[in-house]
Design a protein around this nucleic acid. Structure first.
Lengths: 341, 341
DNA sequence: ATGAAAGCGCTAACAC
DNA sequence: GTGTTAGCGCTTTCAT
């Protein structure tokens, strides 16, 4: 099982030089005859030498790996948003020859070993996530991929300009006749939820509109179950709701069904929109308006900033916000004249 | 930037014991007074000690991380199949407190450091993938998540029983009137492609059916571009095609559009099915029949086997095949009587 | 230009 | 029961 690995010592012996020389020859550093260098290179090649990353890391304090904190892999991968974020990070990591470590994360249990990574990306930090807090406190270079909820240790953040995006969505729906909006969004444990709540409240006040905000569990496949009664009771309690804003594609799909079951029709007497776009929205019936949060770009930007910091010491800005784009589809078509408040 | 980390030496000094004692106290091994043990534990707690995984790994030869080889992260994450696979692996890794390393993989360049993982999962090995071959040869415990294409170094495999599944799909379509099937599937670089090709050929021979097999690029979002002319020309060259089998959801969606553009109607004069199911198939119009390859289960099974091997030395079977389920939907409804060959 | 040697933080074998 | 020590494979001074 344990294969005897070829070490640098083996290479040095094979090449007839000392350990230190072999090391420098391969790393390309320092002063050296081209002759010895190629000699060592050939020996390494011949033996199939591959440096032991652990030993190197122990010595240098660098691992050439970045960590991606994942709170609950199974649920998170259900979201296109998260998948795209990971893809963006992975893309950039590969490009810079960094490994990507999905940091295992049972939220209840503290880590007993420190993660063997040079830097960490923390997508969608949650206030209740013990491990995330641990990572924030660890002193390892870190960038949060979305704003931090209140109460968490500070950190550089790269996030989305939800303020502008949500306002634009609300404006769009308002123009189409919506006067009684409901926002189903992540709760205050997430920075996303906090921002959306605030923007929504402010917008409603400014437009003298009586909006309803209902914190909902984080968007994923389970929304189908959890959201069921939430949306159902909403629609029966507030029969005049004419705009339902849900977190993402799973909720949108569920909402579409629930709205139909409530005897209402999206595109005629009620609108539906999602805060995070996904391909699924294009094929739903009707297609669902959403905010394109450019998660792949966001992930890539986080990784880019982190790696640049690690490789060149570049300082990461305290807060960077990327714009989001409103993608309008049939689900927010103007209400029929006889359905307007 | 580089934070002075707390080492085991610090803990030992704080607790007033020696290094070795501190180590054993924390790892819970061997003989020891409860008193000293708690003494050390408390000191570690007080100092916020976190073991250095690198040093431990160097010493023990174990890292408690498994590697997942990803050929092209961006493309792969487009597929529900792959995402689910990763989610399954991640789930099990977390459960056993293993970290999951997405092994960065520029296929053209050899790795210069050996991956710091105890074992490797190789989903969908491709014959052309230099890094995959390298990993197979590395001697690191490995399990392939799908059968290996011919010519690759041997390895334990956990895959899907595509033989039974595809035959079942073909039988189903045959019963619904299909007599002129086309299989668009991965090419011979992938084990999946090879199996599908063989099964398809055998089935066609047995049923005296004139099937067409066209190797296609691996299923992902780019199918929309690549598959366009492929499907288009197929439909014009062979106007009597009455069953189109595509790799996955992206191809299915594209095919639906292309078939419509060719003036034909799925569910009436032509059938459509996919080799790998996805949620998208449920919401397409019409919903698309597909084989549920249970990718999450497959990923989990791979991880389970690998970790059991690493933790307990359990031998991994040479080949394990998981069953796939045929999920029939409207896209393979019986052909209208006047459209049958 | 090259060799020798120290030491990164940890575990395990061996003294006491 | 606990302390001492060697050494995992590597990089990096410091001599030569």
């Amino acid at each position: 099982m344990a294969v005897r690995r070829v070490t640098l010592g083996d290479v040095a012996r094979e090449a007839g030089v000392s350990l230190g020389t072999a090391s420098e020859a391969l790393s390309g550093s320092g002063r050296m005859t081209e002759t010895t260098r190629t000699l060592v290179r050939e020996a390494a090649q011949r033996l199939g030498y591959r440096a032991n990353a652990l030993a190197r890391g122990l010595r240098t304090g660098r691992t050439r790996a970045i960590g991606l904190h994942v709170l609950n892999a199974a649920d998170n991968f259900d979201n296109e948003y998260f998948r795209e974020f990971v893809a963006g990070v992975a893309d950039v990591a590969v490009e810079h020859d960094y490994d990507l470590n999905l940091l295992s994360s049972n939220p209840d249990r503290r880590r007993v070993v420190s993660p063997q990574v040079d830097g960490i990306i923390l997508p969608d930090p949650l206030a209740t996530d013990v491990r995330a807090i641990e990572l924030l406190d660890s002193g390892i270079p870190l960038v949060a991929g979305e704003r931090l909820p209140p109460g968490m240790p500070a950190s550089p953040v790269i996030g989305i300009d939800h303020e502008t995006a949500l306002a634009r969505l609300l404006d769009h729906a308002y123009a189409a006749g919506a006067r009684r909006p409901v926002l189903l969004a992540a709760d205050e444990q997430s920075g996303w939820g906090v921002v959306l709540r605030d923007v929504f409240a402010r917008w409603c006040a400014e437009h003298d509109v009586d909006g309803i905000h209902t914190p909902s569990p984080f968007e994923n496949g389970r929304f189908l179950v959890v959201g069921e009664e939430m949306v159902g009771s909403l629609l029966t309690r507030h029969v005049d709701v004419d705009l339902l804003i849900v977190p993402g594609e799973h909720a949108a799909r569920a909402a579409l069904r629930l709205i139909a079951e409530a005897g209402r029709r999206v595109g005629r007497d009620i609108m539906l929109a999602a805060c995070a776009d996904a391909h699924l929205h294009e094929v739903l019936d009707p297609p669902v308006t959403a905010l394109n949060l450019t998660p792949r770009l966001l992930g890539a930007t986080c990784a880019e900033a982190l790696i640049r910091h690690l490789d060149h010491g570049t300082v990461i800005e305290e807060v960077t916000l990327l714009p989001a784009e409103l993608v309008t589809r049939a689900s927010t078509a103007p209400l029929a004249a006889d359905c307007r408040l």
